[in-house]
Nucleic acid binder design. Sequence first.
DNA 1: TTGTAGGCGTTATCAC
DNA 2: GTGATAACGCCTACAA
Lengths: 334, 334
Amino acid sequence: MKVTIKDVAEEAKVATSTVSRVLSNSPRISDETKKIVHEAIKKLNYKPNAIARSLANNKTRILGVVLPSEAQDLLTNPFFINAMKGMSMYAQSKNYYITYAFSNDQENEEEHIKEITHNNLVDGVVLLRAREYDESIRYLKEIKFPFVVIGRPENTDGVLWVDNDNFQAMYNVVNRLIKKGHEKIGMVGAIKDWSMSKDRLKGYKMALEINGIKYDEKLTRCQDEFTEENGYEASKELIKDNKITAVVTTDDLLAIGAIKAINEENMKNIAVVGFNNSQLGQYQSPTLTTVDINAEKLGYHATRLLIDNLEDDDSDNNRHYIVDTVFVERESFV
Amino acid sequence: MKVTIKDVAEEAKVATSTVSRVLSNSPRISDETKKIVHEAIKKLNYKPNAIARSLANNKTRILGVVLPSEAQDLLTNPFFINAMKGMSMYAQSKNYYITYAFSNDQENEEEHIKEITHNNLVDGVVLLRAREYDESIRYLKEIKFPFVVIGRPENTDGVLWVDNDNFQAMYNVVNRLIKKGHEKIGMVGAIKDWSMSKDRLKGYKMALEINGIKYDEKLTRCQDEFTEENGYEASKELIKDNKITAVVTTDDLLAIGAIKAINEENMKNIAVVGFNNSQLGQYQSPTLTTVDINAEKLGYHATRLLIDNLEDDDSDNNRHYIVDTVFVERESFV
DNA sequence: TTGTAGGCGTTATCAC
DNA sequence: GTGATAACGCCTACAA
């Protein structure tokens, strides 16, 4: 049979409240009884019932992670699984549990959020993206439910978030390219509404400006999706019509498409840079230069922010965190 | 403030027990009160407190998934994320939640299992692999805690499991190769203790036997890890020393190594087949022929078995499930 | 320093 | 059919 706090109390010949106090390491308790209780706990192999505990103090120590409906690229993009791992790591270290839900569509996602925030199952929510206008964020704010966003939200007022410095990451990429002698640098992105897309475009422009190169709108393309085909088509045009010598992209799949276009046109000395450091990049020819966004760290710090905020409410100074990116140079950086 | 069953009862001017009955769709309750209660629920936007509910009926509707410590290849191998997705799908359809834990090492994993099985947080556990001698399985059996294994365990007595028919999958691969005229077929696997490895080897042998080809031990290699390097080295030897015309492997990474070796030796007409249908395969030259193990289905049916067993204990006839594999033919099938 | 008792929000077992 | 009321296992005033 299940062993409860009562059994421990009997075994140790004390009251249940005493056992409870020992469990929570209450200061005012004699070392003597502490020892006795610990022995009883060990002897009976007692573990507090997490559910009863949750009910009593209205905290579950469970976090709810919502994977976005857009995540069809769950498989291609190492981002998700890495972020999940990072989240798990910090959560485990703080004795929190995580429940993940894959949502089929946006409606499903919002329904799910409403459910877990209302049925008291989770203490906080982690959102894995930032849409431009985000209904889930709006909702969570409205009901004042603790949450953190991976990806900078449109309006950061009173919201916890972690992200890369996408502006800087792209700025650095373009800067490196220019230092290497490139001047006609194309850019291929996707989904322009995302703050990530906007920031990277800004970084691109700024790097050009700082280096005295005039920004030419014709050298940039923004596609609908992060796919190889999109990268291929956009790059093909840029190569043929604009004689670029380098192309920066906002995702490895786009970059892989670019490589394909370049190989077809036999323009070996066009440089290509991707983002996300997905495994595929290593198997291209030339191998793909990319920017690692450190997804595991993003996840780790997201839960860190959330949990720390859950545990003490005066940590208002710790509301966001920027994760560094790493430039991974490979053959395509010519 | 949180709205509870009490508030609903007051609003509807009935007892809490009545509300509870409406919630659980109890038969003996008048349509009249049913309606009134539903209206009150809607008006107050009431959602039952999952925790209190769990405490009352000693069921949490939470499943614990333990990702193996061996899963360094979490990223390369689409298996995990796909399996997770499948598990989520069925669980959600049955209103179950899933908590995932990434374990750092085996000890950590067992500790984690002990915790969640003792603290009443989860109703059942999903194990994502089958080691030869599996301490976690032994433990779960011992304490009679409900669980399911993805991958056939050594001893299937009284355990729920799902798996592919690894014997058949490999049998079919080799058979196809033979039909195409191959006779000297090498095999490269890894970790021979796994039931998966054993079964595929058996399938390989059987296909040869059925087709009247003598099994030659020298044509098989079993490495320590599923890596490209291992595939490369083993294949290199097989090509040079044994003049094989085809090589079957038990993982795409091994197969990718094989392709590399083949390309180096310039033996374009050696066929290569992998397993797992990882994205990388599509980017090889030649593109890799592989066997898709349907990881999403594996996950889906794992939770199905577990949940169905949790809900009614007389479903003893439904203790395992075999997921079909799909042969994905690409250029390397020559 | 320790024990008693009430409460957390449900469900289940009685009655009526 | 419906309403009290006692669990479920833990925590936390309040007492002692």
